[in-house]
């Protein structure tokens, strides 16, 4: 799970994290007691449908301002350790 979520959990914390996580899982397991046969899953609190936006360019370039929040940029690109394919 930690790998899938890309989270490093320190070695000394692993035991505690696992213990707490299993308590949470045990707790939510009580969902299995609910009778949900034929119940439509609810993804949104309101029964609304998607609104559509006109196809118009409304966002000007703001790269230099926005990239001030980035740790490592060069030539307008965000940098990461080399991606190997």
């Amino acid at each position: 799970m930690a790998m899938l979520a890309r989270l490093k959990v320190a070695d000394e914390d692993i035991a505690e994290a696992c213990e707490k996580l299993s308590r949470i899982v045990d707790f939510v397991d009580q969902l299995s007691q609910a009778d949900t046969s034929g119940v439509v899953p609810m993804a949104h609190p309101l029964d609304q449908t998607q609104r559509l936006r006109p196809d118009a360019v409304t966002e000007p370039n703001n790269r230099d301002h926005v990239q001030q929040n980035a740790s490592q940029v060069a030539d307008g690109m965000y940098l990461v350790p080399k991606v190997i394919e």
Binding site: M1, A2, M3, A5, L7, K8, V9, K20, I24
Partner: peptide, 22 residues
Amino acid sequence: YCRTRGEGFGAEVKRRILTGTY
């Protein structure tokens, strides 16, 4: 990825991310 997120998030946030991933 793993260290940024491991170091940047606190214990409860990590717990919930892991629960959600699961």
